[in-house]
């Protein structure tokens, strides 16, 4: 694959040409924050964003996704993926996409995710501003981001564009790219390395050490109840997490007697996530206490999936830390506390 350079002055024309050919999604401003949206104009793209409110998984695993549509004539799958480009994904979110790619494709291959995923060309980009709760430099450091087709790094006067796949290579045709010089390549490497030095939060221990000690703390009910004492069971930590992928499924009717089976994001912190009805008004909630639910999330992030994923199911974006109303969700604080005990 190749490494190219495009001048800042030529970048808008590159975006415009690409947007004319294919829908392009990227980070755009939403009041004081950022979201991944379809670009309507090249100047909407904000590669200087720190972190988006929701992770880019929403393109492959939408918050509400119809699985089936049905009417009196029968039932059919609702999936209709279209080719698109997702531009400006930070490396921690690429790592998260790698995880959901694996989890949705292993064992029972889920076309409803993979259809959208496989029709998406992903261009990662360097982190120009670091969010206030990020810790991506100290989590899962052995795991490299894989599932992107190209990597864009802003340097003086333009962007270095490294292609990783044929799909990434194909994007070169939309812009006035020229081969990058060694100096430009070196500068891009320096810029990306520098971002890793700017995380405001930091895990103090390695992945395996954390996994072992956090798993061993499972039975410490006092600890988990205390950590979760202020939990509202709102599930915000789940909702904003790039590696959470649990969902609920509900059927709804339309006025014309047709309907759809839809999956909605769900979260293991919500009270009824593991609750079963037993009939006669009785129920069994397999994670009834807030502490049990809080513990399940930390176990999922720090231990349960490590073997499968090759690292923790957390990429250090800091969205949960920033999103938590009670400010108790921060994995760094929870894990560092357990490690110190």
């Amino acid at each position: 694959m190749t490494t190219s350079f495009i001048r800042s002055d030529d970048f808008a024309a590159f975006l415009t040409a690409m947007m004319e050919a294919v829908p392009v999604y990227g980070p755009v401003a939403k009041r004081s924050r950022f979201v991944f949206e379809r670009l309507e104009a090249p100047d909407e793209l904000r590669l200087d964003y720190d972190v988006t409110i929701l992770p880019p998984k929403k393109l492959f695993f939408p918050p509400a996704q119809d699985l089936l549509r049905f009417d009196e004539a029968g039932v059919e799958a609702a999936l209709e993926p279209t080719e698109k480009v997702l531009l400006g994904v930070h490396f921690y979110d690429v790592k998260a996409i790698d995880q959901t790619d694996l989890l949705f494709s292993e064992r029972n291959y889920d076309v409803n995710y993979m259809g959208h995923r496989e029709t998406t060309t992903i261009v990662a980009s360097n982190i120009q501003n670091v969010s206030g709760r990020a810790f991506f430099a100290s989590v899962g450091t052995d795991v490299q981001p894989e599932g992107h087709d190209a990597f864009l790094t802003a340097i003086e006067g333009g962007y270095v564009f490294e292609t990783r796949t044929e799909r990434g290579e194909a994007l070169l045709g939309y812009g006035a790219f020229q081969p990058a010089t060694d100096a430009q390549i070196d500068e891009a490497a320096r810029v990306n390395a520098a971002a890793l030095e700017q995380c405001p939060e930091k895990l103090e221990h390695g992945t395996e050490e954390i996994a072992t000690k956090v798993r061993a703390a499972f039975g410490d009910d006092e600890l988990w109840n205390e950590l979760a004492a202020d939990c509202f069971s709102c599930g915000t930590c789940n909702t904003v997490c790039p590696t959470c992928y649990c969902f609920d499924v509900q059927d709804t009717w339309n006025v014309d007697q047709s309907g759809q089976r839809t999956r909605f994001w769900d979260g293991c912190l919500t009270e009824d996530f593991a609750k079963c009805s037993l009939g006669d008004g009785g129920s069994e909630n397999f994670r009834e206490q807030r502490g049990q639910r809080f513990r399940h999330r930390i176990m999922r992030k720090a231990t349960y999936l490590n073997e499968k994923l090759g690292g923790p199911a957390c990429v250090g974006c800091g969205r949960c830390s920033a999103g938590c109303t009670a400010d108790i969700a921060d994995p760094v604080r929870v894990i560092n506390r357990i490690m110190a005990s």
Partner: peptide
Amino acid sequence: LERRMKCGVGKCGHCQINDKYVCV
């Protein structure tokens, strides 16, 4: 064993017992 279950194919997460999925 029985748990709350939605998808039945090891994705939706509801039936987890620690790291096991009851459905798969």
